[in-house]
Design a protein around this nucleic acid. Structure first.
Length: 483
RNA sequence: GGCCCUAUCGUCUAGUGGUGAGGACAUCACCCUCUCAAGGUGGAGACAUGGGUUCGAAUCCCGUUAGGGCUACCA
């Protein structure tokens, strides 16, 4: 198995899914997972994107047995470092007469294409340079034309692809046209480089996006010409945006790093991506990488394209945030809290323990980690203000001063306390004033947090600590009296 | 335009000739509860369309329609 991304930009979510399917397949059946970099597009390829991709793969928990950075018996694993290898096979094809030099200029090609388009035919190269005499070649080269090498596509043949997810698909060679295998700068094109590399690297299965399906017959032709047998192909349908067109920036975040930055957990993204196009045999949809590794199979990959459903990703992520060990979530949440100015690292041991309690109190609200900053302000603020109308109304209740005062008295003094203590103090204050339920909880909640919504009140009280509780109670009392 | 792929609830999907068409997210209601969440229970919600084949079609075949991909000296 291999995953062969081209490093031409931020790592796309669709690429991540292709990688995942390849990785899962390799792990499920004990295969080798190779990461090869297809950087033959000199204009757009950068080292930076390559690193971005590798970092994303690692973050998502996909390790590779062979490939860039780890090496292996089939190296090098960057196509631009394999140029000599390709040249050798180009030479072979040239010798066999399966390929030839073409001197057409871009203008000439464009004109030919337009003409075909006008006639309603599939635009393709018609083989103008197929049989140039040596003299003509010399003349063209003398005129400064740099040739490309084209593959001679046989006529009147039908290529059958037995696709592992799509079944039998066939293409007519006549619709293909001689395609370029070596660009004028000596760099191979994608179609040629994949074939050479996949063969030399003993790739047995190629799992990739559906957009590559039309390339497959060309590649099969190349395998044929080189005397090699092609691997199995499996073309997975595309990931679509809300409007059902190929997922792109218009549809929101498409880069893996964007999800990472927002605070999505890799296990959630993996789980989600796996479910996009593949379905488990059973009804459980929450699956760890371990479970996916055991269950994944190409037979259960769907043929139809899938719309990226952010709601479902959010649900999965929320689930993983809630069930992960608190320490882990705390560590992941700290950068967001720091960035918002709530804390500064390094944290003392005490402060860390306290932050952990805060995280514990609010993590059930989160859909992604970055949202934590929307829920914690009152824990860090010096004073809180009841701003919502609803909150103000709560404080206006006639039993409120008595309740708050009673509570204030009970809280005073002593040091550490637990949630159970807080609960009993709350109950005591209620009993003393004859107020109960909402009548005691809500005003206290508003006085302490400024809002009518929030985490469990006793939990809030433990986290705030007695000092803050007292000062907030005092302030609330003063406000009410002042009115 | 040409070539190719696809078509089950709003979304992701199960289904491979006989099912009350199942599940998940989202949605609605109820329960739990100091609130909001979370959690639990329940409801609503789909086989694009027209022809065949068959005793019987979501399932097989053909057309239509709709969506998508490709059509580069990009991958």
């Amino acid at each position: 198995m291999r995953f062969a991304p081209s490093p031409t930009g931020p790592f796309h979510i669709g690429g991540a899914r292709s990688a995942l399917f390849n990785w899962l397949f390799a792990r499920r059946y004990g295969g080798t997972f190779i990461v090869r970099i297809e950087d033959t597009d000199m204009e757009r390829s950068t080292r930076e994107s390559e690193e971005n991709i590798l970092a994303a793969l690692r973050w998502l928990g996909m390790d590779w047995d062979e490939g860039v950075e780890v090496g292996g018996p089939h190296g090098p694993y960057r196509q631009t470092e394999r140029l000599d290898i390709y040249r050798e096979y180009v030479e072979q094809l040239l010798q066999k007469g399966c390929a030839y030099r073409c001197y057409c200029t871009e203008e000439e090609l464009a004109a030919a294409r337009d003409a075909l388009l006008k006639k309603g035919e599939m635009p393709r190269y018609l083989g103008r340079c197929r049989s140039l005499s040596p003299e003509e070649r010399v003349r063209l080269e003398a005129a400064g034309r740099k040739p490309v090498i084209r593959f001679r596509v046989p006529e009147n043949r039908v290529i059958n692809v037995n696709d592992l997810v799509r079944g039998d698909v066939s293409f007519e060679c006549n619709g293909i046209g001689d395609f370029i295998i070596l660009k004028s700068d000596g760099i191979p094109t994608y179609n040629f480089a994949v074939v050479v590399d996949d063969h030399l690297m003993s790739v047995s299965h190629v799992i990739r996006a559906e957009e590559h399906l039309p390339n497959t017959p060309r590649q099969i032709l190349l395998y044929d010409a080189l005397g090699w047998s092609p691997p199995e192909f499996a073309h997975v349908s595309l990931i679509l945006g809300k409007d059902r067109s190929k997922m792109s920036k218009r549809h929101g975040a498409t880069a893996v790093e964007q999800y990472q930055a927002k605070g999505y957990l890799p296990e959630a993204l993996d789980n989600f991506l796996a479910l996009l196009g593949w379905s488990p045999g059973g009804e459980e949809e929450i699956l760890t990488m371990e479970a996916l590794k055991q269950q994944f199979s190409l037979e259960r990959v769907a043929k139809s394209p899938a719309v990226f459903d952010l709601d479902k990703l959010n649900w999965l992520n929320g689930h993983y945030i809630r069930q992960a060990p608190l320490g882990e979530i705390t560590d992941l949440a700290i950068p967001y809290l720091e960035k918002a100015g709530y804390i500064s690292t390094p944290l003392s041991e005490q402060k860390y323990a306290w932050v952990k309690m805060v995280v514990d109190a609010v993590r059930e609200y989160l859909t992604c980690l970055s949202e934590i900053t929307d829920h914690v302000a009152f824990f860090f603020a010096d004073v809180v203000e009841a701003e919502e109308k609803e909150a103000k109304e709560v404080l206006a209740g006639e039993q409120v001063p008595a309740v708050l005062a009673a509570l204030r008295e009970k809280v005073a003094g002593g040091g550490e306390w637990t949630q159970a203590d807080a609960k009993s103090v709350l109950k005591g204050a209620g009993k003393e004033t004859g107020a109960k339920g909402k009548q005691v909880f809500m005003p206290v909640r508003v006085a302490l947090t400024g809002s009518t919504h929030g985490p469990d009140l006793s939990q809030v009280m433990v986290i705030l600590g007695k000092d803050k509780i007292c000062s907030r109670l005092d302030r609330a009392l003063k406000m009410i009296a002042g009115k």
